[in-house]
Design a protein around this nucleic acid. Structure first.
Length: 605
DNA sequence: GTTAGGG
DNA sequence: CCCTAAC
């Protein structure tokens, strides 16, 4: 089998550079990539003033990298009827990281509230209450801070806090799996959904039946990766079985549709990095949510790809509310390009991938208190988005436009075990999962997000090579597709010595036993297949028959070419006959010479 | 899986 | 070198 070499680029964190102000730094990405030796390009993370992702990352490693650890985090999505048991596979990392969004309201007020988005995440009263320095409020109570709280609690600290009784979810209550850790996401109703992860990494995201290379590549060619974001919980909750092509195809078609329906407006929205909305105008479904909420079932969709607005600063002036979203994070992108691809083509690939994903059907979600605000018709006022109390828990998220999936798919189709899916899965939790962390938002610590982030991070970062290959996104036009997708073996001209060996072997064995030629003379030359030898012989014969000035490449000694013709001639006449030793010997001694003369004649012509 | 031959 | 028909 010939192994094609290819480069995979995983963009776990592809940040859309916002306005040139907030410094960015790599964030939470790289674990997977690094772990898999995958070159990672770009992916610089955004780092807000209050963000310190390193700890999160560390945590990811701590937990996620351990396939045996039973890492359970309880997420709570108030509006979600679905839950999902996420895998805590290091490979199942999702890009979505709940970004904190800072909100500042009413500048004129002496009470500028700056809260970490995390505050909304930590809705668990117990969790919050048990933590010292925690906000005195309960979930619903607003956490007010006099100023921006910078969270710098070290991971260790956070952990300590958790240990001190902040963990509302005893891991013991969760089933443990040897090689697959599960993450349980429970909604407020106490429902659980789980997604099992295959036991082994290698199998984890590999479709049960490995489709042919080409097949896969073809699939990949499409906006394959876009499928993931649309997957719904039910799909993820299918433990057994792998992805089936039918399902995949359907998904793909959906993707395409969506992509085509992409609107300039949307695209612009996501690249502008900032949106201004007036309180009286409210968020209209047209401007913010392109699709009605009908598609928005539970949090599943929304969570799918949770791109959270990085920083949403809100200022309340008069009756106007201004939102400044500094940046959005784009989910992981996997790009596969041949080693011989040019840097330019790589760039184009990335651009296409990003463009596609941005224009492929994203919508914005608004979360308040970690709760999705589904009613697009409500005004900010009615929703409480203008309230100082609520602003600090306001968050924006980019979500893939939900795709209606036939029920049958949910119940019958096997779970597509795709890395992307997994990621999505994780991200889905989001809507504000109440991370069990039990850390209160009041704490100047991002802890609340920690667990969530951690999980998400894990889901995000780790992308096994296998997955990468299968999911590799190769946004290329039809024409270059093939050449780019299925890389051609690198050309390896035969050296004179190789030609010599080949000629010798053919003289001995004849021209119809390429396998034997390979075995006898090129046994150790792994890069030379018998087909290669056959082809080379073919060209040698041709070369020997043309004028020297017509030949290209490294010159082959004339005597060798003569032998080629001699052997060719000989075996042409003796084909079908037994390849006796006698004949071989005869050939060498007699015919060889005779032929040579003939060859010379040809050359002189 | 090999061969043979066109691309 | 790739691709395939044919064996």
């Amino acid at each position: 089998m010939v192994v094609k070499k290819r480069q995979y680029y995983g963009f776990n964190d592809f940040h859309m550079p916002p306005v040139p102000r907030a410094p960015r730094s790599a964030r939470g990405r790289g674990n997977a990539s690094e772990a898999n030796d995958q070159p990672v390009i770009g992916g610089g993370g955004v780092k807000s003033e209050q963000d310190d992702d390193r700890p999160l990352k560390a945590e990811c490693l701590d937990h996620g990298s351990c396939g045996e650890s039973d890492f359970v985090t309880q997420f709570s999505s108030q509006n979600s009827d679905q839950k999902c048991l996420l895998n805590e596979s290091p490979h199942a990392e999702s890009n979505s990281i709940l970004e904190r969004s800072s909100v500042i309201t009413n500048p004129n007020s002496s009470k500028n509230v700056g809260a970490d988005l995390k505050s909304m995440i930590c809705k668990s009263k117990n969790a919050c209450e048990n933590i010292p320095g925690k906000v005195e409020g309960s979930l619903d109570s607003r956490v007010s801070c006099d100023s921006y709280m910078d969270i710098g609690l070290s991971r260790q600290k956070r952990r300590e806090r958790l240990d001190n009784g902040g963990d509302p979810v005893p891991s013991a209550s969760i089933p443990r799996y040897r090689n697959g850790t599960k993450l349980v996401i429970r909604d407020d109703d106490g429902n659980f959904t789980r997604c099992n992860k295959p036991l082994t990494k290698s199998k984890a995201f590999r479709p049960p039946q490995r489709i042919g290379d080409r097949r896969i590549r073809k699939l990949l060619t499409s906006k394959y990766w876009k499928v993931a974001p649309k997957l719904k919980d039910c799909e993820f909750s299918k433990p057994e079985g792998g992805m089936n092509s039918r399902y995949l195809k359907r998904k793909l078609s959906y993707s395409r549709e969506r992509y085509q329906h992409n609107t300039f407006y949307k695209r612009r929205k996501f690249t502008d990095h900032s949106v201004v909305v007036t309180s009286d105008g409210g968020f209209s479904s047209e401007s913010v949510c392109n699709s009605p909420d009908k598609n928005m079932t539970g949090d599943k969709n929304g969570a799918a790809i949770m791109f959270h607005g990085h920083q949403a600063a809100l200022h309340s002036k008069d009756s106007r509310v201004k939102f400044s979203i500094k940046s959005f994070r784009v989910p992981e992108l996997l790009i596969e390009v041949p080693e011989t691809a040019t840097v330019g083509s790589l760039k184009r690939s990335v651009v296409e991938a990003v463009s596609a994903i941005l224009g492929g059907g994203l919508r914005v979600g608004v979360l308040l208190h970690g709760k999705k605000v589904r009613d697009d018709s409500r005004t900010l006022l009615q929703t409480g988005i203008t309230s100082n109390e609520n602003l600090d828990t306001l968050d924006f998220s980019l979500e893939p436009t939900p795709v209606q999936v036939p029920p049958s798919l949910c119940t019958e189709d096997p779970l597509p075990l795709l890395p992307c899916d997994t990621s999505q899965l994780i991200s889905r939790s989001p809507t504000t999962p109440i991370v069990d962390s039990g850390i209160s938002d009041t704490l100047p610590d991002p802890a609340p997000l920690t667990n969530l982030d951690t999980n998400i991070e894990k889901a995000l970062v780790a992308v096994p090579p296998v997955n990468a290959e299968e999911l590799a996104l190769v946004p290329l036009n039809q024409k270059s597709k093939r050449s780019e997708l299925v890389q051609r073996r690198t050309r390896r001209p035969f050296s004179v010595s190789e030609v010599e060996a080949l000629v010798h072997a053919v003289e001995e064995l004849g021209t119809g036993r390429w396998r034997d030629v390979k075995l006898c003379s090129f046994e150790d030359a792994d890069h030379r297949t018998y087909v290669d030898l056959k082809d080379k012989w073919k060209t040698l014969v041709h070369t020997a028959q043309i004028a020297p000035q017509q030949r290209r490449g490294e010159p082959v000694p004339q005597d060798l070419l003569d032998r080629v013709l001699a052997a060719h001639s000989y075996w042409s006449q003796h084909q079908g006959k037994q390849h006796g030793k006698n004949q071989t010997a005869t050939l060498k001694i007699t015919d060889s010479h005779a032929v040579r003369n003939g060859v010379e004649d040809i050359h002189s012509i």
